[in-house]
């Protein structure tokens, strides 16, 4: 492990060479938008919001997986990046049925706040209006696939932290969707421990506690780092 110096947005910074651009940026209060990344879980690299420019490379690089190197020069903001991030978030809005005004996570939603931070005030792409059925069979939680953005945080937390692997993704492409067990009702799942971690890490109102009304569902994704830390200490 070595300490390296690099430049992010004209700021000279230092970081460890096992850290990602995202980690170093975060440590220095430089905001890079993310949706699938969550501290304490494995890296997914699917949302593409954290793409940044690295000088000397034609391709954009995901900040969540790219490790910092000595002398690296990174730009996290540009008109081009903003256009890309804008369009990707618009894509998410068109892919599902996101009705913020009636959502349990209204005001506590990472998709909503990301859109706001990016300056999105309307969606110019046509909505796809998929037909998806809500699963309210679990005694404590509800899964509303209309609000799912397939970040797979629930899949990862269930597999990596809880160890149950109740959730996974089925199908592919635009037909990808979350399932529990063999695509059975969540309430019938034999593997679910009802621990609720999936609900806590869900960035939107797709997974929520029963009985919550519009805007009442507040998530606590930060608990994960605590669990991770505790586990490390036990080892």
């Amino acid at each position: 492990m070595r300490v390296v110096t690099l430049t992010i947005n004209d700021q000279l910074l230092s970081g460890r060479d096992d850290e990602t651009i995202l980690q170093v940026a975060k440590a220095h209060n430089i905001q890079i938008p993310t949706l699938c990344q969550l501290d304490g879980l494995s890296t997914w690299g699917g949302c593409r919001l954290c793409l940044v420019h690295i000088h000397g490379s034609d391709k954009l690089s995901p900040a969540c997986v790219t490790k910092v190197t000595e002398g690296m020069v990174v730009e996290t903001e540009s008109e081009r990046l903003n256009k890309y991030r804008h369009t990707i978030v618009e894509m998410l809005y068109t892919e599902g049925n996101h009705i913020c005004s009636v959502c349990v996570s209204n005001n506590n939603c990472e998709l909503q706040s990301t859109a706001q931070n990016l300056g999105i005030d309307h969606i110019s792409l046509p909505y796809l209006y998929p037909s998806r059925t809500v699963d309210a069979s679990h005694e404590r939680f509800v899964f509303d696939p209309n609000r799912c953005i397939l970040c797979t945080r629930c899949v990862r937390v269930c597999d990596e932290i809880e160890g149950a692997h109740t959730w996974d993704v089925a199908g592919r492409g635009i037909n990808s969707h979350l399932i529990t067990d063999l695509n059975e009702a969540w309430g019938e799942s034999t593997s679910c421990t009802s621990c609720g971690k999936c609900v806590e890490v869900c960035p939107t109102g797709s997974l929520y506690e029963k009985g919550k009304a519009g805007g009442e569902m507040v998530k606590h994704a930060e608990f994960l780092t605590y669990i991770e830390e505790m586990r490390k200490n036990h080892k």
Binding site: W44, G46, L150
Partner: peptide
Amino acid sequence: SCGKCIPCRV
């Protein structure tokens, strides 16, 4: 499309 990343999937 495998569906993993948003730009390709949507």
